[in-house]
Computed example of a mutant assay.
Amino acid sequence: MFRTALVAAGATRAAYGALRARAPGGADRWLRKNHAGRTVDLYGGLAAAAGVVLATAAAPGLRGRTRAAALLATVAAAGCGAYDDQAGSAEERGLRVHLRKLADGRVTSGTVKLLGIGAAGLAAGALIDRRRPVDAVLAAVVIAGSAHLANLLDVAPGRAVKAVLTAGAPGVLRGGLGSALAAGPVAAAAAVLADDLGERTMLGDAGAHALGAALGVSIVAANGRTGRALHAAVLVALAAIGDKVSYGDALWTAPGIRVVDTWGRLPR
Rank of each mutant, 00 (worst) to 15 (best):
L230G: 07
S246H: 02
E199G: 01
V134E: 15
G10I: 11
V172E: 02
V137W: 01
G264A: 05
A188M: 03
S179E: 07
V7K: 04
G176A: 13
M1S: 10
L238N: 01
A18Y: 08
R228L: 09
G204F: 06
A119T: 09
E91V: 02
A59L: 08
I143E: 07
A232V: 07
S246V: 00
H231D: 05
A139R: 10
G51W: 09
A27W: 11
L266N: 06
G184K: 03
P133A: 13
D154I: 08
A213S: 07
D243H: 05
A73W: 10
A150P: 00
M202C: 13
A233F: 09
R13L: 14
L95D: 02
A187K: 01
S146R: 05
A208C: 03
R65F: 07
D28R: 15
G256F: 09
G79P: 03
L266T: 06
A239M: 11
Y247P: 00
T66K: 12
L72V: 05
V97K: 00
G110H: 10
A233K: 07
P24Q: 15
L177I: 04
G212K: 08
T111K: 09
G10R: 14
L138G: 06
T4H: 02
L62D: 06
L71P: 01
L153E: 13
A47G: 05
A213L: 08
G88C: 06
R258W: 06
Y83L: 15
V142H: 10
A49W: 05
V236A: 11
A208I: 01
A120V: 03
G64S: 13
T39N: 15
G94F: 09
G176Q: 10
L152R: 03
D129L: 10
L235R: 13
L62Y: 01
N151S: 11
V97C: 02
G264P: 05
A69L: 10
R130I: 00
H209N: 10
L6G: 09
S146I: 01
A156R: 14
A194I: 02
L215Y: 13
V245P: 02
P133N: 12
G248Q: 13
K33T: 09
A191L: 02
G51L: 09
G94S: 12
V155R: 11
R96E: 14
G248Y: 05
L115C: 08
L54F: 10
A49Q: 04
A21S: 15
V260K: 09
A69P: 13
P255R: 03
A14D: 12
A124I: 04
T111Y: 12
G25I: 04
R93Q: 15
T253K: 15
A68H: 12
A188K: 05
Y16N: 03
R20S: 08
L46M: 14
R100F: 01
E91Q: 10
G37D: 05
A139P: 07
V245F: 01
G216Y: 06
A210V: 00
Y16F: 10
R268D: 08
D129R: 14
G10E: 14
A36P: 00
L138M: 04
V137I: 00
T111F: 13
S246M: 05
G121N: 07
R268V: 08
A78V: 04
V40P: 01
P24T: 15
V141D: 04
L211W: 10
A140L: 11
G79W: 08
A59R: 05
L193P: 07
R132E: 12
